[in-house]
Design a protein around this nucleic acid. Structure first.
Lengths: 346, 346
DNA sequence: TTGAAAGCGCTAACAA
DNA sequence: TTGTTAGCGCTTTCAA
């Protein structure tokens, strides 16, 4: 790679001149070489190589109206993204898929409510072709913003709000939380457990709600004393377990709405000398490898392909972007499958 | 905000027409209104408002040669960024500072060695004005890439390589790891502890090396049996502690190179019924709130302002970008101060 | 299959 | 203080 002076990179014009062709032909070659005779293609390619030519992005965007970039918007409540392996894997999947399509990831962190103005301006400024966002707990202005900016968006996680009538629903990607929960609870029931408790996630997150619903799908009329509230953290799981044990010392199984809470519950069970899974069987959710495999005993849990969800989000969005060209239909939401992973805790 | 049809956003031309001025005047107003008479400014602003005008980024970049975006490059070995609160805080700081300067953060995740080509192309394509990167364990091609692309870069963490002669050193931001370690060890010594062990971080990370050096600065000739290797994880800290205890049951203090390892060490000490800090005093490093405050007893540790480091990285880079205009000097590396935080473990 | 030429939307000399 | 004008580097008709 030839050394480049910081100022004045070679332009297409220079490449064309060197290859002895017109700028138009050079452009064609750079963009795939469709309909250009082989010898010319080679000449241009060589000139590109020799000059170390790299297309100027702004110029290209100006005429094509395509930026080749996608925004990933992360709102404040989700800033845990950086400590939550869940998000990290999702981002990883997104990044991989975008990279594979030569599309860049622009990270938009929302630090506070006032930032939405900034985001709106950015999204409207033609910086990106589309946006990827994560489902927020509260009603958030993003759907409105992307609509006004006229760019497609895909959500990660089922949004808790429902589209206003006439509004187009926002497409999202989510795991089959309800189905996964049913898998877990059925498994416990088939094990012969009869008093299966549930540690819930925060009710303002749809994943928690859906998992609770799955639990109730299987255990039709649930005894409320078998239900405890948690907030997806280890500590909350421990607290919930202690509470359950107090109320129902006779319980013989627990389905925790995520692995973190399951590990907290496990700690409490162990501290009290309650054998797992012999006396109490325990199932988590998420199959977070940093958690589920590390506990003692390792957790039986519900697996979801998180990175795959990220990839899917990106793919859905990219497909939507190509819509004009390919004439495909508007992106649809996708529910990804979940599977039960048997380890030692149940 | 008026509804916008996805296609054909208003241009400056339209704003100018509506305001009854030339495009140049409209442009001036949009860019601050310097040297435009008040009434015209108002007219233009009103037209902007009415039309919902947002400047086209590509067009602007094409002529100004400024993208208003900065790349944050994260190489594979650092993908832990998303599970390591250290990085997450750094990113947060970067994001805040960039946002304050209306600059966008473009995230470039390096998934494998082959990706550097892609990164190089991106950095050369005029997508961003500069790059922020994190110090890698091994020699990495990024400094060369940014130099060839002719864009300034700032590193987070002291790089382990030294600039080739003639090469300009890469500016970086790092905590005063060595000084912080000295703080910790002096504190233990002043407590009257005489057999102060050290649990090292991985030798291929400069922060670990620097902390070890700080330890040795204070304890001039260290008994090698008081040194144990770790890898900055909880587990490695536990293992190292067990090892130390075996070799030197008489040790009366431990300085762990980070909080994670300190918490692992603490667990082992507790399991063996060794009173902390009475029999063994323990000091960590990082002051990670999710760790240091949660242990029992809470960790005495060395604090560094991680988010501040991120902000500083961004600030240094932005300053470098303005260099031509302000005539400032090339960015210099910055070492940020560390302080000892006394809690209960020592 | 190739080239000439017309912009994409904006900023920045330069003139008025 | 304002307007006119010449591009920034590229893609894309349209003609040849």
């Amino acid at each position: 790679m030839p050394e480049q002076s910081p100022v004045s990179r070679p332009t297409l014009e220079a490449v064309a001149a060197r290859a002895g062709v017109s700028r138009a032909t050079a452009s064609r070659v750079v963009n795939g070489g469709e309909g250009v005779r082989k010898p010319l293609v080679d000449k241009v390619l060589q000139a590109v190589e020799e000059l170390g030519y790299v297309p100027n992005h702004a110029a290209r965007t100006l005429v094509t109206r395509r930026t080749g970039a996608v925004a990933v918007v992360i709102a404040e409540p989700e800033i845990r993204i950086f400590s939550d392996p869940f998000f990290s894997q999702q981002i990883r999947g997104i990044s991989k898929e975008l990279t594979a399509h030569d599309t860049q990831l622009v990270l938009l962190l929302v630090e506070g409510p006032g930032d939405f103005d900034r985001i709106a301006r950015y999204l409207s400024g033609g910086h990106v072709d589309g946006a990827l966002a994560f489902s927020l707990h509260t009603h958030d202005p993003l759907p409105t913003i992307t609509r006004q900016a006229g760019i497609p968006a895909v959500y990660g996680g089922r949004p808790s709000w429902t589209a206003a009538p006439g509004d187009q629903a926002v497409p999202y990607v989510d795991a089959d939380n309800r189905g996964g929960a049913r898998l877990a609870v059925r498994y416990l029931r088939d094990l012969g457990r009869e008093r299966i408790a549930h540690i819930c996630g925060p009710p303002d997150q749809t994943s928690a709600v859906d998992r609770f619903d799955g639990y109730r799908d299987v255990l039709l009329d649930v005894d409320p004393t078998l239900i405890a509230d948690g907030s997806f953290t280890v500590e909350s799981g421990a607290r919930a377990m202690a509470e359950l044990l107090e109320r129902r010392p006779d319980l013989d199984a627990v389905f925790a709405a995520n692995d973190l809470m399951a590990s907290g519950a496990l700690r409490v069970l162990r501290e009290r000398g309650i054998a797992v899974p012999d006396r109490v069987a325990l199932v988590g959710f998420d199959d977070m490898d940093s958690v589920a495999e590390e506990t003692d005993p390792p957790l039986t849990t519900v697996n979801q392909d998180i990175e795959g969800q990220g990839r899917l989000m990106a793919r859905l969005l990219l497909r939507g972007l190509d819509r004009d060209r390919t004439g495909a239909e508007a992106p649809q939401s996708v529910i990804t499958p979940t599977t039960l992973v048997r380890r030692a805790s149940a």
